[in-house]
């Protein structure tokens, strides 16, 4: 699993699903998703479902925190780490 590829796929998902009514708003791997309110309490569940469907990685509730969901780069790093633990 490649972190850059995961980040790109996450950003595509976020643009399409969360920013569809917010045309023109640009985001990148370091955009603060929580601080800007792009991920909220409803959308986090959609994101969890997407991560499970796309990479077969369940995100345990204990890992849903501000550090892991700060931006797309952090989320991708968490997914890759969880994937590695599953493989082991």
């Amino acid at each position: 699993m490649n972190t850059d590829a995961v980040t790109t796929r996450l950003l595509d998902f976020i643009r399409v699903e969360f920013l569809w009514s917010d045309e023109g708003r640009e985001i990148d791997a370091s955009t603060p998703l929580l601080e800007w309110g792009i991920i909220d309490s409803l959308r986090i569940a959609l994101l969890q479902s997407f991560i499970l469907n796309e990479w077969d990685v369940p995100v345990p509730a204990a890992l849903i925190d501000a550090k892991n969901f700060k931006n797309a780069s952090c989320i991708a790093a968490m997914i890759c780490e969880l994937d590695k633990e599953t493989v082991r």
């Binding site: 991920i39 849903i64 501000a66």
Partner: peptide, 9 residues
């Protein structure tokens, strides 16, 4: 407690 962390703060 952490306003910058949105709903996870």
């Amino acid at each position: 407690t952490q306003p910058e962390a949105g709903f996870l703060g």
